[in-house]
């Protein structure tokens, strides 16, 4: 076993266990904390794939900003534990099982019956350079400039929309 495989197994285990903990915890703040742990494990997995930039952005944006806002709201609302409104209804349980089975079959099909992608068979040096911030920046500002600008424009529109909604009176 090489170091990479050991790291992968450890990180994947943390990610899977924490993902399960997110939905089994009854307290919303504890769920949020396990979600943060899950983000960290994912960032580690990205690092193993030589995607340094994605890994750090994962931590900065998801763990550092979005989850802080989540926690912020949860703490202000101070919900003690979840309400058991939906769990005792039969048909909801049935649909939950149906949907999870569907997703499971899809994933199982993808994993076992399709060919693995053969993108990273070329030069190891080249493939290890793909995830660096220089390459991502170059691609974003040359080949993908229009989607990039469109995404930026959408985000700006969303920000302005949120500002208007947050204002109490329209002047």
């Amino acid at each position: 076993m090489n170091l990479e495989l050991i790291l992968f197994i450890v990180l994947a285990l943390i990610a899977a266990v924490s993902a399960v903990m997110v939905i089994t915890q009854s307290h919303p703040v504890m769920s949020a904390i396990f979600l943060i742990l899950n983000f960290f494990a994912l960032a580690g997995l990205y690092l193993l794939l030589n995607a340094q930039f994605i890994a750090v952005v994962q931590v900065i944006v998801y763990a550092g900003a979005i989850m802080v806002l989540f926690l912020f709201v949860l703490m202000l609302l101070n919900t003690s534990s979840e309400f058991k409104v939906l769990t005792d209804k039969k048909f909801i349980k049935f649909f939950a099982l149906l949907i999870s089975a569907f997703v499971f079959v899809q994933l199982a099909y993808l994993i076992f019956f399709t060919k693995p992608s053969n993108a990273v068979k070329g030069n190891l040096n080249v493939s290890s350079q793909i995830g660096t911030i220089q390459n991502i920046g170059k691609e974003l500002y040359t080949n993908y400039i229009i989607p990039f600008e469109a995404a930026g424009f959408l985000l700006l529109a969303a920000t302005i929309g949120a500002l208007i909604l947050a204002k109490k009176k329209f002047e």
Partner: peptide, 25 residues
Amino acid sequence: DVNIGVLYVLALTSLGVYGITFAGY
């Protein structure tokens, strides 16, 4: 000697808030 050293520092400082938030909560 990390290529993304500055981003690493920014990522960690953005995590520093958790220590204080958890303490408060």
